[in-house]
Write a protein that binds this DNA or RNA. Structure first.
Lengths: 228, 228
DNA sequence: TTAAAATTAATAGTATTACTATTATTATTG
DNA sequence: CAATAATAATAGTAATACTATTAATTTTAA
């Protein structure tokens, strides 16, 4: 995994940035540090001015890379889902047994990111924390239809589609595969959030991971046995 | 239902407002019109100044009722979940059969609000649209733990708890009742959103309602038959 | 009925945000 | 070494999210 990821670069919609942040040190710093800063102070309080101060750079220099903070968020979330897609594809490839593959897919999608893989300037563990807290804000906007048409959510949609296929192949009779796929991917984020802030609303805690809940949910719904 | 609702008033945490908007015409106008305006322009673009212009009142007068627009959103969402709780309790009361009761609960929680009941200055159909688009923003904040401690999410938590109980009573062996309850309630909003903006990510459309998906999901998961 | 109290409206003002524009400086490359 | 590209610095703007003060109006209670 480590090795495979070494040559990994997420291809992100080029309208999401003005200048590709991967092509310069400043760009990488903007991406890397914005993740840390958004995690610390939250997306609402995050500004390019504060980020500039933090990386000893200027507000206006950041505007050379990203039009505004919303586009930066779309960039970061695309990166995350692209990385997740990569993990999903690699970790489920070559698993012949459809049930085992489905189980693995749920595992990849729902496991907590424990470590930064150090493959890049991106801290995946903290990026995961941001996704849990901020992802919804990237699409719960009045511009969503326009931005969707532009293709800004393409990676996420492709990921949901891949998971839908894995579900459908494991149980061809099931008619709600798309909804189940999107419910699980969204639900995973939600359960992680509840675990941290509303423990009474979730069964998940130190001993029970979202993975267990969703594995049980999907296999029961599809009327499949986890081991066979 | 109409009649029962006539004497209905949601009891909302008193720290969510500075002056109870139910006690004056201006207050009711603020609540009623804020729903319409947020629906029209989205929560991000919504300001008290714009609302003031719309109700031919002054920005500063609105500040007499609500500290800021975040508190107003918490007020509106509390109202919505309180109304939902009321519907849930009434519509599931006196249903002896536990499976039938569970099915009814899912129906109440997932059905599309078709009509404004005209019981108040609140347009429930539009409020429902707001909840779909904006509810997450009320808790995906850095202040969530503090606000949760204050009790601002009490009504929502009580609703999830009630649904959890209905699930647990229908299937006492099931160990993930809390997570299933929160997943369904959150998932319903998400599926309604996807239906409108990302049709490829959901099975729900004109012919298939979220209700069908979630009814199937819950009954399969709990290993119960819908009719028996 | 009238005076006090409460409510609402109007005006002004502030710090911050989310930018844009311009120019100067520094680094890179051909 | 010169041209070009990238970055930094400075300044400025309209809008936002408020606060404070005072004035006008309405409500209530003696």
């Amino acid at each position: 995994m480590q090795n495979l990821l070494r040559n990994f670069k997420v291809v992100i919609h080029e309208k999401l940035y003005l200048k590709d942040p991967e092509t310069s040190e400043l760009g990488k710093k903007i991406v890397g540090e914005s993740i840390l800063l958004i995690d610390e102070i939250g997306f609402e309080s995050f500004t390019f001015k504060k980020l500039g101060a933090r990386i000893s750079s200027n507000e206006s220099s950041i505007y050379r890379y990203f039009e505004n903070k919303h586009k930066l968020l779309l960039y970061l979330t695309s990166w995350y889902w692209g990385w997740m897609e990569y993990k999903l594809v690699f970790q489920t490839a070559n698993i012949a047994n459809l049930n085992v593959r489905l189980k693995k897919a749920i595992e990849v999608l729902s496991e907590e990111i424990q470590e930064d893989t150090n493959i890049s300037h991106v801290n995946e563990k903290i990026l995961n924390a941001i996704i849990i807290n901020e992802y919804s804000k990237s699409y719960l906007t009045k511009e969503v239809d326009h931005e969707n048409k532009e293709g800004y959510f393409a990676i996420y949609k492709r990921l949901v589609g891949r998971f839908e296929t894995i579900i459908q192949e494991a149980q061809p009779n099931y008619v709600f595969a798309a909804s189940l796929a999107s419910t699980v991917i969204e639900g995973v984020l939600h359960q992680h959030f509840l675990k941290q802030h509303f423990p009474s609303l979730t069964t998940c805690n130190k001993h029970t991971a979202p993975q267990q809940f969703f594995t049980d949910l999907v296999f029961s719904t599809l009327n499949l046995k986890e081991y066979e």
